[in-house]
Design a protein around this nucleic acid. Sequence first.
RNA 1: GCUGAUGUAGCUCAGCUGGUAGAGCACGUCCUUGGUAAGGACGAGGUCAUGGGUUCAAGUCCCAUCAUCAGCUCCA
Length: 636
Amino acid sequence: MPTLTLPDGSTKSLPEGATLLDAAASIGPRLAKDAIAGKLDGKLLDLSHKIEKDAKLEILTTKSPEATEILRHSASHLMAQAITRLFGKAKLWVGPPLNEGRYGFYYDMDLEHRITEDDLRKIEQEMEKIAKEDLKPVRVEMKTEEAIQKMVEADQPYKVELIRGFGVPSVSFYRQGEFLDLCEGPHVPRTGVFGGLKLMAVTGAYLHGDQKQKMLQRVYGCAFFTKKELDAHLKGIEDAEKNDHRRIGTDLDLFFTDPVAPGSPFFLPKGAFLYNALISFMREHYQRLGYQEVITPQVFSSELWKRSGHYDHYRDNMYFCRVGEEEFGMKPMNCPSHALMFRARLRSYRELPLRLADFGRLHRLEASGVLAGLTRVRSLSQDDSHIFCMPDQIEAEIQALLALAFEVYRVFGMELRLELSTRPPKSLGSDEIWAKAEGALRKVLDASGRPYQVKAGEGAFYGPKIDFHAKDALGREWQLATVQLDFNMAERFDLEYVGPDGHRARPVVIHRAILGSLERFLGVLIEHTGGKFPLWLAPEQVRVMTITDKEIPAGEKAAQALRDAGLRVGTDFRGDKINAKIRDASLQRIPCLAILGGREAETGAVSVRDRDRGDLGVLPLQDLAKDLRARIDTRT
RNA sequence: GCUGAUGUAGCUCAGCUGGUAGAGCACGUCCUUGGUAAGGACGAGGUCAUGGGUUCAAGUCCCAUCAUCAGCUCCA
């Protein structure tokens, strides 16, 4: 008779052969009703699983996030079943649940019928029908050989491949009604638990994620236990889409794009202001941290790109032109220029670390299908820098870089996810230097106290790296900051410095960007703030507006006084009602509105309405200026 | 680059089974001078993405191209 320990510490004994559902029922009928799956000693299992020995038990109800994941996994099966019913045999690949973002699951399949948007509605209806049938998914264990045989007969070649790939003696299937699918489980106890189902998109996805292989059809959907949760989710997506930087970029007159320059945003005055403000912000840090800014050419002879290795490895992403007999390439990166600068004369170890910063414009011929607003562009500039240092200096430099990144992102209030990518199978440089470099990165990361993920073997062939990712409005991740060690560049450009011992030695190069591409950073920042830029960054910080035409002279004076105090001031002296002016300014996310009526005009004061703090009442102009200046200076 | 979708005024969109374009907002002029999220009237504004084709007739149907969007691949 197995004894179960419940999460509250109490124990319960159940007869031999009892299932998780029986266990739930013995605790309470309500729990049995809401139960979706269970955990025995931390292992997720079906409710129909028979309990064989003593264990810790946890019953997952519809409220549990893990239950939602199980539901979504079951939803992908439900969808595959519906598609099979509607369109005949689909050769199935995989259909995992998704935790984050707008989609909850997908299924990849090879299906002769091309699924259309209209089909999605039909499939949904069929799924709901199957949900109503309230089928009970049944787990079926099978010996691998038998399973392969079965899948061969069922003409499911991808499943055969999956089973072979597992390399285990037996596998499990789930059968619901006429539909059988390879799956580890667990699944929901019955298809009736689906309350909210929605199919959202049909796209292509390469088999094995390999461009050379067949493109399968992928259908994305989302599933919840209740219609209410689904509706809330859909509403959430709708709201997030309001923060799409492309939408805000148009509404706030920040930038636009034109087919004459795909992937190359035009920054309008306000967008350009933001762009330059980000550069100024970084320059302040540079001044403090010993960086030296340089200016480098735009177009280089292909001779340089051959030397740097870009010609072999990156040519497809470069713009080339011909001048006379010679071929030139536009720079996609700054590193070769900086290498030439390092080499311009003999360097001493006393100069190291040499930190060259460059906001130069880069051009990368990104594939047409990857372009996206500001987040993936063909024309960009980065807060780029290359640090030339001795191996012993790596650790201190990395530490300073992490500190800088954390400091910068703290100001913007943005969350970062860190990744350490280590030595790939094919790499350059000695074991010793890789060990030293990876050790330094790890040490600094550990010391930072921040969580990070290790991506084993994902480093560049020339060195390990730390990447920093942030999310956009729809939960998609973008790489912003990056810190990459490079043992290759010094070699290729034959870089040397004279060491303390009088002998020449190779420096190590660190490629790093904190904001990363300014375009991408701005795009993510726009989505993060919804266009409500912090006061210090807002292109227009204060808007002075008048109630009637009579206050215009006082308004002009007030605006000038605020400008004299160093603020960026706009005015709205139109003959519209104050309501309309406030509405317009609010839609433009102006941080501070200074309103003048007859009363204020006489006393040299303004009525202040703050974007984030609401109505601040009537303030003398000087007090307002002081308050704003203080907030700007502290970037709060 | 690949799969799918979309492309009508500056923006958001309507335009039924083919009969040569419409709204709201924005913009301009005028009226209104109104105290914290839209006052009113009038006006201007379109090579219906581009190029072919079918048709007596194409925004509408077909093909190609370009761009954009959602994914996939890529991001030395």
